[in-house]
Design a protein around this nucleic acid. Structure first.
Lengths: 150, 150
DNA sequence: CCATCTAGGTTCAGAAGGCAGACTCAGATA
DNA sequence: TATCTGAGTCTGCCTTCTGAACCTAGATGG
């Protein structure tokens, strides 16, 4: 019996669990845009050029997953509006985005445009792996053990 | 007009481009399993519990994207079989997987099971960001500039 | 020589999810 | 009272996913 979303979600592999939350065509782009300063439904819909009917359940899913939080706010003399912000857990997705940027820049033709910079010195940012013993770990020295119950 | 797959693929943002190749429920799991030592169609289908009808076009897409390569091989006295292996470009997806593992372990309840280790010393591996000036970059110090043409 | 097995698929019908565009609803504004 | 705006929902079509059955080529058994 192939895996359904439910069985993916009950898996114990952290990649499977993460992918079941983030592995669709929109979630990471939404996180990117919220991180980039877009917080309102219509801003997101028009920047991403995503159908509102798709954006709405996606936002709800990300809120449900604890990645975004929805807050009502009210500018003086305006009515209440909804706003989406990253939770702490959402903030910690940045290394994933940074890794995607790194890879996209190097391996997908024509990927320019977006910049990641260190707020301290404005230098470009990249991702690296390290082990608990303090060594830098190049890609070829990563060992991945996939247990049977994925 | 909302974005279609075609407009996503023609985007210049590296996240968008990467997500258009990898942003579905299966591609990263396939890469994980190939990295973990599964190379044949049936091994992948049964370990992932994915329908063959879905696995087949996914593998073709990953081959097309230059992430996997398909090679026929022949064990002595057996007939030709197909085998999927990571290309160099596919190997370089490991930081993305590592970042997903890191995040999943910390933020999704019950994510145990999969281990990433440094082949040199077998210590667990984690991901960190650094800037070109040599500073470590904590999540909160990443600045992301999303240009209008996403 | 014929039947069977196996790896690696393809084909099919039905279910689920994505899409565009129209509609809704509540509070502010004219 | 009518209109505007943000944040959605509703509807109908279309594409993709799913599970099961089927196909093909080369080995293997009788």
């Amino acid at each position: 019996m192939p895996a359904t979303l439910a069985t993916l979600e009950s898996s114990r592999c952290p990649i499977t669990r993460s992918v079941s939350l983030l592995g669709d065509r929109w979630s990471l782009l939404i996180v990117r845009d919220v991180l980039g300063g877009l917080h309102r439904f219509d801003e997101l819909a028009s920047h991403l050029k995503i159908s509102r009917a798709v954006l709405s359940p996606r936002l709800a899913g990300l809120v449900d997953a604890g990645i975004l939080e929805r807050a009502d706010y009210r500018e003086p003399g305006a009515r209440r509006r909804a706003e989406y912000r990253l939770t702490e857990s959402g903030q910690e997705l940045v290394p994933i985005l940074a890794a995607l940027v790194d890879w996209g820049r190097r391996h997908v033709a024509g990927s320019a445009g977006l910049r990641l910079a260190h707020t301290g010195c404005l230098s470009p940012v990249h991702v690296e792996m390290g082990c608990a013993a303090g060594h830098a770990v190049p890609n070829a020295q990563l060992r991945i053990d996939v247990p049977p119950g994925h």
